[in-house]
């Protein structure tokens, strides 16, 4: 007892008593760790090992006549080859355009739809359901349908454009390097905006009605009410929505893979489709792994901001 009393008197001891080291904290919570151990083991097997193996593989060359177990040490050659390749630069630019444009327009459209549907009007439920359709339709099925809608010779959109006199011949959406990426982005936005809409509709429920009424009484215009009252309340959910969309878009493969396979002439390749082609089309497993590691680093950075955005409220409360 006396020893404990003596330590409590010292400011240094008081600090160490407040913040015990990691191991003693782990020991104190050993039962908790036991409970999460099964989940941790599963995560180690299905997440940590593949990550480790991908990083390891990224330092090896995998010639087509050798099995993976006979891979050849290459140091940083794969990273050098990937980063110095002109295709990588083009694909990176495509990826940035794809991600930013898809995220921005999906968010803006989703926000607009959410604001429209937030008001009471007849048929609101029906509209909500209709606007959710793109999100619940299988991405694979949607890609095939859009591929035919866009078809350069017999597509419905091209035929309509001709019939309505907008063009003299069918529009070449997918077989043209200049139009293919934007055509795919349109499909992606069509798929994703309902997700943003649902998120923002949830966010709108948190905006206090009294504040909006007070602002209206004070003579604020609809834009001012949105900008100064509604939007500040949506900041948190907007941040999360944008980050989730960005992560999803960086990682998306279905639409470009099915509709164009990255073509024509690499014009619609984004990182994921290019990695897939390197790995499975060309069996350059090492280069594909290096590519994946680079993408992993980018994703981790995005993940960091995502977690920060999610925990910002908690930190504020702790302070």
């Amino acid at each position: 007892m006396s020893i404990a009393t003596g330590r409590a008197a010292s400011p240094l001891s008081a600090r160490s008593a407040k913040k015990p080291n990691v191991f003693s904290r782990m020991a104190a919570h050993r039962t908790d760790y036991l409970y999460v151990l099964p989940a941790l083991i599963v995560m180690m097997v299905v997440i940590a090992y593949p990550i480790y193996y991908t990083i390891e593989l990224s330092f090896y060359r995998t010639p087509p006549n050798l099995q993976l177990r006979d891979k050849v040490w290459a140091g940083f050659d794969n990273y050098t080859a990937v980063l110095s390749s002109s295709v990588f630069h083009e694909v990176t630019l495509n990826t940035v355009i794809w991600t930013v444009a898809s995220t921005f327009f999906s968010f803006v459209l989703g926000l607009g739809a959410a604001l429209s549907l937030h008001r009471e009007f007849i048929g609101r439920g029906l509209f909500r359901a209709l606007l959710m359709i793109p999100y619940v339709v299988s991405a694979v099925a949607a890609s095939y349908v859009w591929k035919w809608l866009y078809h350069s010779d017999f597509g419905v959109i091209g035929a309509l454009a001709v019939q309505l006199g907008f063009t003299s011949e069918p529009i070449n959406f997918l077989d043209n390097r200049q139009t293919v990426l934007s055509s795919l982005i349109v499909v992606n936005i069509w798929r994703e905006f309902s997700f943003a809409m649902v998120m923002m509709m949830a966010g709108l429920q948190t905006v206090p009605e009294q504040l909006l009424r007070a602002a209206q009484v004070d003579g604020a215009t609809p834009w001012n009410r949105f900008w100064h009252v509604t939007f500040p309340h949506l900041k948190g959910v907007s941040m999360v929505t944008v980050l989730l969309l960005m992560v999803a878009n960086f990682n998306s493969i279905i639409i470009p893979f099915i509709m164009t396979g990255g073509g024509p002439a690499d014009a619609s390749h984004i990182w994921i489709t290019h990695i897939y082609q390197l790995a499975f089309g060309r069996q350059q497993w090492g280069a594909a792994a290096a590519y994946a590691v680079i993408l992993f680093i980018v994703m981790m950075a995005l993940g960091y901001f995502y977690v920060k955005a999610l925990t910002r409220g908690d930190e504020a409360r702790q302070e």
């Binding site: 591929k147 010779d153 069918p170 997918l174 077989d175 509709m259 024509p264």
Partner: peptide, 13 residues
């Protein structure tokens, strides 16, 4: 494909 445009435009996909 380019000069005569006498084949399907969708040949690339």
């Amino acid at each position: 494909y380019v000069r005569d445009r006498s084949v399907p435009t969708s040949a690339l996909t």
